[in-house]
């Protein structure tokens, strides 16, 4: 790693001030950023750790919506949402491995927006609101392509407001070496319709499958998507799977998620 300084502020305001320096970079749990730094793929002059900010920790439940602090670890989400939003807890409990889950944070994952990460799928399918130090961003506006979000330089994901669906399920076809999703589909059924978010499949990152949403909103059953086809255009091609394979998986995983939704 190149040399850099680290600050550990204890308030969002201090973190925002520290991030005003040129080349300063926010540090969540570091489970992606630290390996990136080791490979010298990034060279920040300063890291601003967000793990010491008490206001960004933990989960509050105000009825139909969960408010999850941006620095809340996957392990905490997995335990603390088991009763309130089981599909979210299940997703969080299968990210990476136990040691990664004890460090990695939901805010860090959403800020990174890896095209194969799990959290973007639940945030988009749930119609979450990404809360930063300056504003609130709807998930539909937040995710803007592979590793790209609506965040400005120095803007911090302080919390996520996550509406809890009537029924939901996440199906991840695991890439076994990385534990990322080769394809993952999160299905969320609300009173006013169904939202389907797909991760791992597209060169554009997480996205909604609107045809499936329309079909499932009319008939919430696995058979409702039987007649749909997924285009392989602009899907990811790598050594783990072709675009056509991923297109197939999107439909299969969606069907499984609908069948398992509870």
């Amino acid at each position: 790693m190149y040399a850099f300084d680290i600050e550990r502020p204890t308030s969002v305001a201090d973190a925002v001030a520290a991030l005003k320096d040129e080349d300063a970079q926010a540090l969540g749990g570091g489970q992606t950023l630290i390996p990136t730094l080791k490979q010298r793929l990034a060279a920040p002059s300063k890291l601003v750790s967000l793990t010491g900010i008490a206001d960004m920790q933990g989960i509050a439940n105000d009825g139909d919506t969960l408010r999850i602090g941006g620095a809340t670890t996957h392990a905490t989400v997995a335990v603390d949402t088991a009763d309130t939003y089981p599909a979210l807890a299940d997703l969080a409990s299968h990210i990476g491995d136990p040691a990664v889950r004890n460090r990695g944070t939901i805010g860090g994952s959403l800020a990174n927006n890896d095209p194969s990460a799990c959290y973007p799928a639940v945030a988009l399918a749930s119609g979450a609101t990404i809360i930063t130090n300056t504003r609130e961003i709807a998930a539909d506006d937040y995710f803007q392509g592979m590793f790209t979000t609506a965040l400005e330089d120095g803007e911090i994901v302080t919390a996520i407001s996550m509406p809890v669906p009537e029924k939901a399920n996440y199906q991840k076809f695991v890439q076994p070496a990385s534990r990322f999703a080769l394809v993952g589909v999160f299905v969320a059924k609300f009173a006013d319709g169904v939202r389907v978010a797909v991760t791992g499949a597209s060169n554009e990152g997480v996205h909604r499958w609107t045809e499936a949403e329309d079909a499932l909103s009319a008939d919430f059953s696995a058979g409702a998507i039987a007649g749909l086809t997924v285009s392989a255009d602009n899907l990811i091609a790598d050594l783990h799977g072709s675009p056509e394979y991923r297109a197939h998986l999107v439909k299969v995983m969606t069907g499984r998620a609908v069948a398992a939704a509870s």
Binding site: I6, G30, Q31, I34, P35, L47, A99, N102, R103
Partner: peptide, 8 residues
């Protein structure tokens, strides 16, 4: 449990 090579 944490991976001590991935924590400052």
């Amino acid at each position: 449990a944490v991976k001590s090579c991935t924590m400052f």
